[in-house]
Amino acid sequence: MSGNTELTTSGYIQHHLTNATVGEGFWTWHIDTLIVSAVLGLIFVGLFRMIAKKADTGVPGKLQCFVEMIIEFVDTSVKETYHGRSKLIAPLALTIFVWIFLMNFMDLIPVDFLPVLVQKIAEWGFGADPHHVYSKVVPTTDMNTTFALSLGVFVLMLIYSVAIKGVGGFVKELTLHPFNSPNKLVQALFIPVNFLLESVTLIAKPISLALRLFGNLYAGELIFILIALLPWYGQWFLSVPWAIFHILIITLQAFIFMMLTIVYLSLASEDH
């Protein structure tokens, strides 16, 4: 698509940053994000299920060793970070880490490959105008995805807080911290301040989770798009080093999201 003379530089960038959508207004669905996310989720579940069914006590294959390393790494992270008792945390952490990594990994596919493939299929199979066929193949460059993940974590935080501390304990945590006083009158005066500070802290957690992941992946995708605008020799000179460095970024962002999820749920599970 970078060689398409009908597209200006700004048009080329805008085309790559536009989702394929259906619906209008609030009920607009980014179907490319939904499809890619679902397919990657099925790949994750299917692969790990296949390895689990074929696992034995004998000499494991390379793929089984790799999966076992990931599971052991996540399990160790959970044991060292989560101080409560829950059977959900380790599977949740594994799902978050692998699924987000797979979604981030789509950023390493050449920026024109899948969008052009989708355009050709739409043109040849459905007679669509390729200039009006959009496809973003990195789900984590879509803020809807990152906020959906962070809101899921936020809901779990509330559930764990109420389940372990009770409604009264959760309300006390929001109103009696961080400022406390043995004097009941002074404590009562601090309740609005405490509630405001604790509410901001609570709401900031899912927002920071979503924006951190989105910002890093969006910036990385934009750099790949800008590199694709260069002549072919410049593309190879810059894209290969950036792709190698980006492997660290996509892995680190998946790890950070997983670790912050564990930390937040551990804090929600503490009964003061």
Rank of each mutant, 00 (worst) to 15 (best):
L174H: 06
D75G: 03
H131K: 11
L226N: 07
T201V: 02
M259G: 00
V200E: 00
V193E: 01
P115D: 01
D142R: 03
V116Q: 09
V36P: 06
H16F: 07
F97P: 01
H131A: 11
N216C: 11
W29H: 12
V193M: 04
N194Y: 01
H272S: 02
G58R: 13
A188T: 12
I159M: 13
L114I: 14
V67Q: 08
T145S: 11
S266Q: 04
G46W: 10
L189W: 09
L226G: 09
N216G: 12
N19C: 08
S266R: 05
I247S: 10
V263D: 08
N180Q: 11
G234E: 11
A219C: 10
S181W: 05
L189N: 03
L267M: 10
G25C: 07
S37T: 14
F255M: 09
E270D: 13
A188H: 04
E80M: 13
W29L: 15
P130N: 10
I256F: 13
M143F: 15
P139A: 00
R49A: 15
L114W: 04
V67H: 08
F126I: 05
T18P: 01
A210L: 04
S135G: 05
L213N: 15
D56W: 10
A90F: 06
G152Y: 06
H246I: 01
H15R: 10
Q235N: 03
F245W: 14
F255C: 07
M50D: 12
E6C: 00
T21F: 01
I223Y: 03
L42Q: 13
W29I: 15
D32F: 01
R49Y: 14
V133K: 03
F237H: 09
P110S: 00
I35K: 11
M103A: 13
N216A: 11
L213D: 09
K136M: 13
P206L: 00
L102Y: 09
G125F: 02
Y12P: 02
E6V: 07
F26T: 15
K79H: 09
K184Y: 01
T28S: 04
Y134N: 02
F237W: 04
A38N: 08
T145G: 07
T146R: 08
P110C: 00
M69P: 00
G215R: 07
K172S: 02
F214N: 12
T145C: 13
H131L: 14
L117D: 03
W232T: 14
Q235H: 07
V67R: 05
P139H: 01
P192K: 04
T28Q: 09
F126E: 07
F97C: 07
V200N: 02
T81P: 05
F73G: 09
P192M: 00
P178A: 00
P182I: 04
V36W: 02
L196V: 05
S239H: 06
T21W: 01
Q253E: 15
M157L: 05
I207V: 10
D112K: 08
L267V: 07
G215K: 08
Q119S: 10
A210W: 05
M50Q: 13
H177G: 01
Y134T: 00
Q235D: 07
L196A: 07
